[in-house]
Design a binder for these strands. Sequence first.
RNA 1: GUCCUAGUAGCUCAGGGGAUAGAGCGACGGCCUCCUAAGCCGUAGGUCGCAGGUUCGAUUCCUGCCUGGGACGCCA
Length: 554
Amino acid sequence: MKQVVIEALQTASPVPLEPQMVERPLHSQMGDYALPCFSMAKTLRKAPKLIAEEIAAAVSHPAIEKTEAVNGYVNLFLQRDAAAEPVLRPILAKGPTYGSSTIGADGVVTIDMSSPNIAKPFSMGHLRSTVIGNSIALLLEKSGYQPVKINYIGDWGTQFGKLLTAYRKWGSQEAVEQAPIKTLLQLYIRFHEEAEIDPSLNDEGRAAFKALEDGEPDALALWKWFKEESLNEFQRIYELLGVTFDSYNGEAYYNDKMDPVVEWLDSEGLLTESDGALVVDLGEEMPPCLIKKSDGATLYATRDLAAALDRKTTYGFEKSIYVVGNEQSLHFQQIKLVLKQLGCDWAQDITHVPFGMILKDGKKMSTRKGKLVLLEEVLKEAIELAKRNIEAKNPSLENKEEVAKAVGVGAILFSDLKQHRKHDIEFDLEKMLQTEGETGPYLQYSCARAHAVLRKADGRGDEGISSVNDYEWEIITQLQQFPEAVQRATVELDPSIIAKYAIDLAQAFNSFYGNVHILSDATNQSFRLSLVQSVSIVLEESMRLLGMQAPREM
RNA sequence: GUCCUAGUAGCUCAGGGGAUAGAGCGACGGCCUCCUAAGCCGUAGGUCGCAGGUUCGAUUCCUGCCUGGGACGCCA
C-alpha cells in the first residue's frame, strides 16, 4: 500500500522519494500517510509549506481520495472502499499463516532459555526467560527459521555439595518425595543459616561436591534423584505455560566437554596464570575471563564455552540466542571475545537477549534467605481469580476450568511480555492479576466477542461495501500492519512489539464493536463480518505468538 | 573508581530527528429493553532527569552531570 502512495507522490514531487520519507501521521484524522517537506526546502530553495502545497495540489491517483497540505506536510487520505478489500482478502484466504514468511530460509537458531536450577524453586525471573524465549521461538518459526529451544538446566555446582550435606544431616526421603522442591529449598536455606554459625559446613559442602564430581555412587544417586524430582515439578509449570523444549542438556552434560576446551585455549597460547587461576586476557577494555579456579575446578565461563562449541557442531546454528538477565551481559561479551580469539568467526552470531530483574521492595530476591515469590503460587492465584470472574460474569460457561486456566495464565504471560524494558521490574502481584485495560484477558475477551458475533451471524448479510467508516478503517489499517509487526518483532527479538500490536488491534475492534451494532444493522453487513473474522484470525495468531491461549468463549 | 542499562502524566509503561508527545491503571462523569460492561464514550493530569552541543528542527542523536539498578577473578 505504501508503494502505491510513493508512486502517487512521485508523480507530483520535484525530487526523487525514498520509502522512509513517507511516514504515518500523528493522528488518524490527519490522514493515512504523510510526507514531510522540510528536507526538500534546501535543495529547492523554497519554503516547506509552499512545497507541500504544490505537491498536494498536483497529486492525482485513483488510490488517493484526497490530499491536504498542513504545516509543511502533505497528508494523504486513501480511497478507503478500494483499499479495504485487498487487506481483508489475504487474511481470510491465509488464515493463521497471514504474516508468515520464509525470510529465515530454514536457518537454525538455538535459544538458551528458562534454565532453572535443580533443587531450587521456579522463580519469577525464570518466568521471564521462559516466556520471552518461547515467544521468540514462535516468532522465528513464523518467519521461516528453525528454532531449537534449549533448557540449560542448572544441575551442577557447589550448591549440590551443600544440598547433599544438608540432606544427610537433616533430610528425609519421605519429605522430599512429598514436596521435592519445597523440602530441598528448606534444606538449602537451613544449610546457609547453620553455616553462618558454623563455617566448617561450607568445607563439608565443597567436599561433598568434590565427591560428586569424582563419581561417588551414593552422592551420584542422590543427585540423580533430586534432579528427577525437580524436573517433574518444573514439568507441571511448563505444561501450564504451554512451553516445550528440544533439549534439556544442562550444565552436567558439559562436564566431559570442558577439558578439550581448556586444552585448546592452552594450545593457542591464550591461557595465562593469575593468582593461581587460569584466565584468558581480553585486553584493556574488559576484565579477563576466568577459565579455571586456583584449585583446578572449572567455572561458568568454561562450561558456557564448551556449550557454545557443542551447540555449533550439533546444530550448525546461524544464530545462537541467550535469553538471560542483563546482569550477565559482561559474561556474554567475554564469551564472545574468547571464541573470537580461538578463531571462531561465528562468535558474532551469539546474541544475548537481556531483561531486567524482578525486584521485591526494591531489592533482588534471594533464594538463600527464602525471600522469593514462587511462580506456581502466582499462577494458581491468577487461575483462581479467573474462575471467580467467570462465575460472576458468565456462570453458564461450559468448560470453566479450562478457560480459567487459559485466562489466568494469559494474564501472567502478557503482563511480562508487553514490557520490553531492560529496566528492573518491581514485583506487583496486583498488576499481574489485572484483567482490565492492556492485559491478556482483554485480548482474549476481544477475541471471544468477535467469535460471538460470528456465531450469531450465521452467514447473514450480503451487501457490498458502500462506505468504510472511521471505526472500520482503523481496524483495516491495523490489520494491514500485522506482517510488518511480526517482521520487526522477529528481527529485534522482541515479543513486546506483538503484544503492543495486539492491544492496538483489540482496541480498534472494541471501539468498533461498542459503536456499531453489527448484527442489527444491515448496512455493509457482509463486509463487517469479514472484518470481524479477520480480527479474530489476527488476534488469535498474535496471542499464539505470545504463547497464549484464545478461548472462543469466556 | 571503571563499564553496562535506564530516568516521559500520581503509578506502570509506549513512542521516537519533525505537526497539538500517546496508552493503561488510579481519579472524576456518562453508557447495558441492544452482538459477552473482562467493554465503550468523555474530563482532568506532562518545562519527556539537568546543562550544553549538532541541526532549518531535539523529548529522540552527541558530550558532561545528577539519580536508580546491575556488572567488574576464583558464584551462576
